[in-house]
Design a binder for these strands. Structure first.
Lengths: 240, 240
DNA sequence: CGGACAATTGATCTACCTCAAAATTGGTGG
DNA sequence: CCACCAATTTTGAGGTAGATCAATTGTCCG
């Protein structure tokens, strides 16, 4: 929860309290339920305490583009604090628990806690950095590299919050979800995953992902984790 | 220059002064020159006073993905203030004049001017919103729609800062640039542009873009400008 | 056990890519 | 003002990664 902001930068005790206090209540969502929708003007933000969420845009003809995934510790819609009207939707991929932070509380933080404000700002900049990396992938990488890259990223991010170890983690995404995130069809995602399994790079069964050969996966993905701006961690160099 | 932050939100006189004072000096760049490179840790940010800049990532095998374009009034690398190490590069597409803002000045602003800080933060969130729209396009739209969408966006943004009117503006991009921005090849961009010209939707000659039929261009692009979070303007509804 | 959803397979198609050459354009120096 | 160079734009032919469509199979659950 607050631990994840500390990945981004050190917090003082006082700041920790302020953040704690900002969470007004919690909210439970079922898998598949929308957290906010395009066009909404929510009065609060949601800190993910547990679960897996995804931002997406819907286009004409039922096409969907998933824009990012969010895990425990992320404030999934911090932008709604400053931009008011949502230009995309966010939904709970798995059942989620959110810490609800009223915009008012955020405004108070920005008035009195410059350091904390910078950390929050920073977390939105990291979101944007991830977005850019995805964009480079969708625009210029092969389907195989894109899928491999997504797996690398999910694993590294889950490891960073202690939700993965030894190359094993939960990956509660359908092949259609993965396709919508990478600009591919579910059919093609299926074929690419079979390729990765065939080469014994990964062993994915339903919601469990096992990476058997990190090095080859990393190479197939052209994965360089600098864009995550993590401090330390798998193949990561210190940020800041 | 400062006018563009006012598009985002109202400024007090005092704040205007603070911003003015933050610009330490100016910097001239030739077309094609890099402003910052991936891996750099610049001590300052650049406010574009004049010209056209682009962010991009380089991938193995000479592939390039352009991530966004920036015009007069944009602070093109504000993220370097909080993220330190650049995870992508920015280059001047045309000759550019930059207002140089030392990170130190930004830090001072964040310490003493919460409202101004929120505006700056907000501008980075709008950058991210544009990024998301591009991503949806690259992932899920046809080549024709992508090109049309880019043209719509450039025109609307230039109009918003008074650099375009009546559907006419400068578009100092090569077809290779456009391709690198949209995940296409220059060859295919060429063919798509011919299509748009053939249908008399646009008349582009070298660096001048003329939109003859805005409505059909908008439809071909599936262009909905909510993601730009402009207040008013062409087809735009008030933001905030 | 049955229903719904997800994964898989196969066959076919096409939007966009690749490669390569020719035509334009703009700029430069003589 | 013209000749020339480099960078773009344009054209053509052929190839392919990934899409589409339509079953079939497998899995999870109530």
């Amino acid at each position: 929860m607050i631990r994840s902001l500390e990945r981004i930068g050190p917090l003082s005790d006082a700041e920790r309290c302020v953040l704690d206090a900002a969470v007004a209540r919690t909210r439970q969502l079922c898998a598949g339920q929308d957290i906010v929708r395009e066009g909404d003007r929510p009065p609060e933000c949601g800190l993910i305490l547990d679960g897996f969420a995804g931002r997406y845009k819907l286009l004409p003809k039922g096409r969907r583009q998933i824009l990012s995934f969010h895990i425990a510790g992320d404030i999934c819609d911090l932008q709604s604090f400053l931009l008011k009207e949502m230009d995309h939707s966010i939904c709970a991929v798995t059942a989620c628990t959110l810490g609800v932070i009223p915009h008012q509380a955020l405004r108070a933080i920005t008035e009195c806690h410059p350091h904390l404000t910078r950390l929050l700002w920073r977390s939105t900049l990291i979101d944007a950095a991830v977005l850019r990396e995805w964009m480079a992938g969708i625009g210029r990488r092969s389907a195989l590299a894109r899928v491999a890259h997504l797996l690398c990223e999910v694993l590294v991010r889950l490891e960073a919050v202690g939700l993965a170890q030894d190359g094993v983690c939960e990956l509660p995404l359908t092949q259609t979800d993965i396709g919508d995130a990478l600009g591919l069809t579910n059919v093609h995602v299926n074929r690419v995953l079979q390729q990765l399994r065939g080469q014994e790079i990964i062993t994915s069964r339903q919601t469990i992902l096992v990476v058997n050969d990190w090095e080859r996966l990393r190479q197939a993905a052209e994965f360089v984790p600098n864009y995550l701006h993590l401090r330390g961690g798998k193949d990561g160099e210190p940020a800041e």
